[in-house]
Design a protein around this nucleic acid. Structure first.
Length: 543
RNA sequence: GUUUCGGUAGCUCAGUUGGAUAGAGCAACGGCCUUCUAAGCCGUCGGUCGGGGGUUCGAAUCCCUCCCGGAACGCCA
């Protein structure tokens, strides 16, 4: 709000100087001694007006309309204009937060938008591993942030239950099952060797005995295996704080003839041709490096085909944008998928793909290589049981999606301050503790105080500026889709709190001072908890 | 070879629609608990922003070139 006032003031001033079409940049300086807001407009105009930036800055300041909220306006070389806000203006944020509670910081920048975010989408052929964990954390955090920013969001998981991998899963289950009765059946090529498949086989043995030693169990194994593993995926994700609005089955695409219909649409629009007995899609006309086969010469589909149909199905539901969160190893797959959605919609940019780079796992200073064949991999469940949900959620949220990241298990396993999540949770617990003691002393916390006579420290000013900044942070994190903006904010707020806490006692003999500070802490607690919830981390009442 | 992500402090990472002395955590070092939780606070140390050119009043950020590492380049999924 202050920023908007400032923008209007500057626009009027530029009109007086007869400057047109000049975008005004207003930023919050990193160094607060440079003011609460700052603009580089004078430097931008140097070339246009052919005048020294400092002189232009002087002219602007002289012509600025008066506004008592800006206590001080200063010019700094090489030409910045810095604005200092009367701190008393900031005090109103306290009752604002305490009134709006978890609605504080909510934005409307996303209104009218309905995003569909597809993430994880792991095949139901085994346990979720560390890469899926990163995807789950990223997708879920993004969804929460977008909602906070006013977007409508649907979270979706695509279940690949129609392809060849399920066939291999079924054969793998059979091999494991037969082995329990000393029958030697070879694992299929590209079989699944995870220990969860052995557990699955044992569970079949427990319920059905040796029935499938004599009788063919293919159909049963297939259905049982998918159901069993899908149920595990759901419960593992739930333990990680991640839920989905829609679990979409690939098999449904065939039942509803969506695949066939989509192929026909593409054919009718003239985007296909036949060559070497196969049907190709002209994706190279839409930024792909070459055309792609959608129907192989043996008549079956490639992986791409049902996936295009799946995106067509999502598009038909009326979202304003589709977001896929994929592993970075799929980057080559992105152009063909975007080409297909452009063919179907006639529009570019309907599908956006956020790529996650690999997670390198380190233990004892050495990289842990994942082996698919032996089923040796760090699973999500392992991480949750060994380290806990919160540190892992926080750790993943801290990194930008696009960066290669390293997960040091020795470090993650430590329950020390090396895990940054404790720092934030501790801040929240400290406030909770003060609140408890206040109530024991019979102090009533009036959260709606709007007069603050006893605030006289820089620590409080810092705390207030961070609280005021919350909405801006939400909006930037949502628009740029960068969850780590939120963890940075959490750290900033926790730091301001700890620093304040160390400097002065909240519960003092001065009744007025005590009440004012309790109202402030109450507001900090609300925002801290809300920000943590955006990255799927619980706030603790005590530690 | 092509595409793509990355190379910023000892380590892990922010910062890249050009802007003020390049930031944070951890590690290291020095202080602070008879007072609301020391999982904390206060301070110090620490960087040729991979190398080299160029554009600009101003470059970690934009352009060119080279070097190093991850990943992908199927009528697999």
């Amino acid at each position: 709000m202050m920023e908007q006032d400032l923008r209007n003031m500057l626009e009027k001033t530029l009109e007086k100087l007869e400057v047109k079409d000049q975008a005004i940049e207003i930023e919050v300086p990193n160094d607060r001694s440079h003011g609460d807001f700052s603009t580089n407009i004078a430097m931008k105009l140097a070339r246009v007006l052919r005048k020294a930036p400092l002189r232009i800055a002087e002219d602007i300041v002289a012509l600025l309309p008066k506004n008592k909220a800006f206590k001080d306006i200063a010019i700094a070389p090489p030409g910045f204009i810095n604005f200092y806000i009367d701190k008393a203006i900031y005090y109103s944020v306290i009752s604002e937060i305490n009134t709006q509670r978890e609605m504080y910081g909510t934005s409307t920048i996303g209104s009218g938008e309905h995003y569909n975010i597809e993430f994880v989408s792991a095949n139901p052929t085994g346990s979720l591993h560390i890469g899926h964990a990163r995807g789950a954390a990223a997708g879920d955090s993004l969804a929460r942030i977008l909602k906070k920013a006013g977007y409508k969001v649907t979270k979706e998981f695509y279940v690949n239950d129609g392809g060849n991998q399920i066939h291999n899963l079924t054969l793998s289950i059979n091999a494991r099952y037969q082995a329990l009765f000393n029958q030697s059946v070879d694992m299929p090529e590209d079989g699944y060797y995870g220990k969860e498949i052995i557990a699955l086989a044992e569970s079949i043995k427990a319920s059905h005995g040796d029935r499938f030693v004599k009788e063919d169990g293919y159909r049963f194994f297939r259905q049982y295996g998918v159901d069993y593993l899908l149920a595990r995926l759901k419960s593992d994700l739930l333990a990680f704080g991640v839920t989905f609005d829609i679990w979409f089955s690939e098999a449904k695409l065939y039942e509803n003839n969506t695949v066939e219909a989509t192929i026909n649409t593409l054919k009718e629009k003239g985007f296909t041709y036949e060559k070497d007995g196969a049907v190709w899609l002209k994706t190279s006309d839409f930024n792909d490096e070459k055309d792609r086969v959608i129907i192989k010469s043996d008549g079956t589909y490639t992986y791409l085909t049902p996936d295009i149909a799946y995106h067509q199905e999502k598009l038909s539901r009326g979202y304003t944008k589709l977001i896929d969160i994929l592993g970075g190893d799929h980057h080559g797959y992105v152009p063909r998928l975007q080409a297909a959605t452009e063919m179907l919609t006639g529009k570019r940019g309907v599908l956006e793909v956020d790529l996650l780079q690999m997670v390198k796992v380190v233990r004892d200073g050495e990289e842990l290589k994942m082996s698919k064949r032996s089923g040796k991999a760090i699973t999500l469940v392992d991480l949750i049981t060994e380290v806990g949900k919160d540190p892992i959620r926080y750790f993943f949220a801290m990194r930008s999606l696009n960066t290669h990241m390293e997960l040091d298990l020795d470090l993650a396993l430590k329950e020390t301050n090396e895990n940054p999540v404790f720092y934030a949770q501790y801040a929240h617990a400290r406030i909770a503790s003060v609140m408890r003691q206040a109530s024991e002393k019979g102090i009533h916390v009036n959260t709606l105080i709007d007069h603050f006579d006893t605030f006289d420290s820089e620590k409080i000013d810092t705390l207030l500026t961070v609280l005021v900044d919350y909405k801006n942070v939400i909006e930037e994190a949502a628009q740029k889709r960068i969850p780590h903006k939120i963890t940075q904010y959490i750290h900033r707020l926790a730091q301001a709190l700890h620093s304040f806490y160390a400097e002065e006692k909240v519960l003092s003999d001065n009744e007025r001072a005590t009440k004012e500070r309790l109202a402030l802490l109450y507001a900090v607690k609300i925002v801290l908890k809300d920000a943590l919830s955006l990255v799927g981390v619980d706030a603790k009442e005590s530690m």
